[in-house]
């Protein structure tokens, strides 16, 4: 079971590398969206430091959603999805591999860029650990939940809009506890409760999302 998982992840990563700019788009969008805020809100350092966590998290949600629309779409259009459904590998494993590849190509770069953006917005130094820990636990949940939406929109026109309507409400718990973790860390309060909730959300998504997405994909090819 592990071998097919690695084969699938390697293929998706290789595709992401070959497509170059396509896979960098989420990261570029993330940086641009955050950089716009000081222009819009004004250079008041206190205000920016106060909203830094929220801005970074909201931008991360939207950026991670950008790449989701294509998660299964390309395979659906060129017939690969049918063959993946027919492969002697459980569909849940295929979905898990695609989610892992999505996180490695979007979630991980977002995590790497987030501290720089936090510096830009003048976030309290104490908040950095909270931000990284919260993103490390939160972004995989975003990829997992998003995959269910990406599987459901296959075959529909204007899938991108539909995807945001389906997925953004489900992202709200991750957003709330992600921002709360950073604020708690910056304010010197206990970080642990928020991280435990984020872990709980991640485990729940891990347990449910691959099965839900696999069921949606089987429907899509029928």
């Amino acid at each position: 079971m592990l071998n097919p998982l690695l084969i699938l992840i390697r293929r998706d990563l290789r595709l992401a590398v070959r497509q170059g700019m396509d896979s960098m788009m989420a990261l570029v969008f993330f940086v641009l969206a955050v950089v716009l805020f000081p222009f819009g809100v004004g250079p008041e350092a206190n205000v920016l430091a106060r909203i830094a966590a929220g801005v970074i998290w909201v931008a991360a949600l939207l950026a991670s959603m950008l790449a989701l629309e294509r998660l299964f779409q390309a395979d659906y259009e060129d017939g690969s999805l049918e063959l993946l459904v027919l492969a002697p590998v459980p569909m849940e494993v295929v979905v898990a591999a695609k989610i892992a590849a999505h996180w490695l190509t979007t979630g991980l770069p977002l995590m790497a860029a987030a501290p720089l953006l936090a510096v830009l917005l003048g976030m309290e130094a104490g908040g950095f650990a909270g931000l990284l820990a919260a993103l490390a636990l939160g972004t995989p949940s975003l990829s997992l939940i998003g995959a269910v939406g990406a599987a459901l929109i296959l075959g529909s026109r204007r899938g991108g809009v539909l995807l945001s309507l389906l997925i953004l409400p489900l992202y709200i718990p991750v957003l709330i506890f992600g921002v709360a973790a950073v604020d708690a860390a910056a304010g010197g309060y206990a970080l642990q409760p928020h991280l435990l909730v984020l872990t709980g959300l991640l485990l729940a998504a891990l347990a449910l999302a691959p099965w839900a997405a696999a069921a949606a994909l089987r429907q899509a090819v029928e």
Binding site: N3, P4, I7, L8, R11, R14, L15, R18, Q19, D78, G79, S80, E82, L83, L86, A87, P88, V89
Partner: peptide
């Protein structure tokens, strides 16, 4: 199953396309 769609990835070479399916079905 060989359907109407050829499931060829434009960004992978012919060998890479084929090795992927060969490994997924028959092991690496």
């Amino acid at each position: 199953y060989v359907g109407h769609l050829d499931a060829v990835k434009p960004d992978l070479t012919v060998a890479e396309n084929l090795v992927f399916w060969a490994a997924l079905r028959g092991g690496s």
